[in-house]
């Protein structure tokens, strides 16, 4: 009887430890996503100023500017889940990157002090976003390892823990986002 109780106690302890470890990893993902969300919001907040500076000069990119503004409005809606936010960020980043490349065709814009200031702020934000995405992806990887590896995978399936989406880190971002360089090419 005593042996049974000891074994049951050990099993109980292992279950509690596995449960807590999984919950802690899940919460870590959520916490870091909150950090990602905060920097993404900063970028969305900066966007109206950038768009208004660009609108004066970039007549041919009117459609792109409109699309970006539309994406921003969608991203700013409340009630979006994490996956939707990530998908929007992905589209937004690609469009913004493309737009910044086309700034090259507007020399007067490149000389505008106000725009230069916005460009540098955006550059810094992109660095912060890149760091936040990397932190998020690492926490998701740790979480995925925990829900897939034995024996925590059994506990994870009982807890109905599911895989989470990773941010796609584009190659140019691996080399460090540097919007400044885009302008100086």
């Amino acid at each position: 009887m005593q042996t049974f109780l000891i074994v049951a106690g050990i099993i109980g302890l292992v279950i509690v430890l596995m449960y807590n470890a999984l919950i802690s990893k899940k919460n870590q993902v959520d916490n870091i996503f909150a950090g990602v969300d905060a920097v993404l919001k900063k970028r969305y907040d900066l966007l109206p100023s950038i768009i208004s500076s660009l609108q004066e000069y970039m007549i041919h990119e009117k459609t792109t500017l409109e699309k970006i503004t539309q994406l921003r409005s969608q991203a700013m809606q409340s009630g979006l889940d994490n996956e939707a936010k990530m998908k929007l960020d992905n589209q937004f980043s690609q469009m913004l990157g493309g737009l910044m490349v086309s700034v090259e065709n507007y020399p007067t814009l490149k000389a505008n002090e106000n725009f230069l200031h916005l460009q540098h702020t955006l550059n810094e934000l992109e660095e912060q976003i890149s760091a936040a995405r990397r932190a998020y992806n690492q926490s998701v990887t740790d979480y995925h390892n925990a829900i897939e590896m034995f024996p925590t995978n059994m506990m994870a399936s009982l807890m109905h823990l599911e895989h989470k989406m990773l941010f796609t880190i584009i190659q140019s971002e691996r080399q460090n986002v540097d919007v400044k360089n885009l302008f100086q090419k």
Partner: peptide, 26 residues
Amino acid sequence: LDNSEFEKFFVVYGDDQIESRYILSH
């Protein structure tokens, strides 16, 4: 960190997962 060679040589501690990566760019 997401650089396997760096991880091979160094261990990193910090009190902010995001800011540590902001500092330690690729």
